[in-house]
């Protein structure tokens, strides 16, 4: 009798889904590094990666210096944006929250524009650092202005919007003054992974993976933030402390992702809702799965960006919105049907 009862409540999160997502990410990654103007064989790729006699010459360079860092960067950025989006949605109890909510996007945009429009472009190489600083400063300013911190999440959201608008205004002013910078700034805003190299992959992986590790370690507790502060306190959570850790880690991941690849929209909203919609679960135990799904989504989107107009490339942001938006609407609709 007891066994029968247990089966009917079951596990709150089915880890098989996480495992399936990890498997899907591996498949998509292999697909992404083998496809392109030069086709690389699967066996050769594996042999090269494990240090056996595989690819040589140009093929080897294409694999190790172009596709592999690019695929890894796509995975890192996708993972960072999806996880941060999911965390922001929980922290602000707002399904429309995305990682750029507190001004991270506009701050990064302003930082990047300053780097691009700088006379002579001699600080162009510092673009990631400038956009990282811009994003972090914007979020800190939002916090500072809101004053009440988390006591009023809506005040924080509004100050994020104000800081974002201000940064965008300054950015537009700079663009108008330096019209030659319009195109590179525009390209950057649409997001690009073409710049990927091992240096970017290595420094961004440090920040992104450590932020994700922190977020996954607190993921189970994040469910408490779906309740009122009094309720979560009675269940053993200090809600403000938890929010602070969550937003700090999510902002670090987002700022890193933005500085490595520009503004790639939609991932932070689509992927979390997709995972929750398909599994019918809102628990943050799904965070690791959302991270893996985000990585797979962006690797796949990048493959699309490289393939659709091959050998030319589409900005990856176009693909994420073009594929993401209809799919997202489909999930929303089917969820509404099952709810009613």
């Amino acid at each position: 009798m007891n066994e029968k009862k247990q089966a009917s409540i079951g596990q709150i999160w089915n880890w098989k889904i996480t495992f399936a997502c990890a498997l899907f990410l591996v498949l998509v990654s292999i697909l992404a590094i083998s496809f392109g103007p030069i086709h690389l064989g699967f066996i050769d790729i594996v042999k090269t990666l494990i240090g056996m006699d595989g690819l040589h010459g140009q093929d080897r360079t294409v694999l190790l210096d172009l596709r592999l860092p690019r695929m890894l960067l796509a995975a890192l950025v996708g993972c960072a944006l999806a996880t941060s989006g999911a965390v922001y949605q929980t922290v602000f109890r707002n399904p429309l929250a995305d990682p750029y909510l507190l001004g991270a996007a506009s701050g990064a945009g302003l930082g990047a524009t300053i780097a691009i429009t700088n006379s002579g472009g001699d600080i162009y190489g510092l673009l990631p650092i400038f956009s990282f600083l811009g994003a972090t400063l914007a979020v800190l300013t939002s916090f500072f202005i809101s004053g009440k911190f988390f006591a009023e999440p809506n005040t924080l959201l509004l100050s994020g919007i104000a800081v974002g608008s201000f940064a965008t205004a300054v950015q537009t002013y700079l663009q108008q003054r330096h019209s030659n910078a319009l195109r590179p700034v525009y390209n950057w805003i649409l997001g690009e992974l073409t710049v990927a190299n091992w240096s970017i992959v290595s420094w961004s992986s440090i920040y992104i993976l450590s932020s994700i590790a922190v977020l996954i370690s607190i993921s189970k507790k994040l469910d408490g933030l779906l309740l009122s502060d009094e309720e979560s306190f009675s269940l053993g959570i200090d809600p403000n402390r938890l929010r602070l850790i969550a937003v700090a880690a999510a902002t670090l991941a987002t700022a890193t992702a933005v500085s490595a690849s520009g503004l790639i929209g939609f991932v932070g909203i689509v992927v979390p809702h997709l995972v929750r919609g398909v599994t019918h679960r809102v628990t943050n135990r799904s965070l690791a799965t959302i991270a893996l799904a985000g990585a797979a989504f962006l690797v796949l989107a990048d493959l699309g960006a490289r393939s659709v107009l091959s050998p030319a490339e589409l900005p990856i942001g176009v693909i994420t919105a073009f594929v993401g938006a209809p799919f997202f609407l489909f999930v929303l609709r089917s969820r509404r049907v099952t709810h009613s």
Binding site: I9, I12, W13, P95, S219, K220, K221, D223, G224, L226, L227, S234, L235, G236, I237, R276, H280, R281, V282, T283, R285
Partner: peptide, 22 residues
């Protein structure tokens, strides 16, 4: 919490005793 089932909601009560999600 939108989208949370009754079973999940009641299970949150165990968090204090067993740790979150355990």
């Amino acid at each position: 919490p939108r989208g949370m089932t009754v079973a999940e909601y009641v299970a949150l009560g165990r968090s204090k005793i067993e740790g979150w999600g355990n």
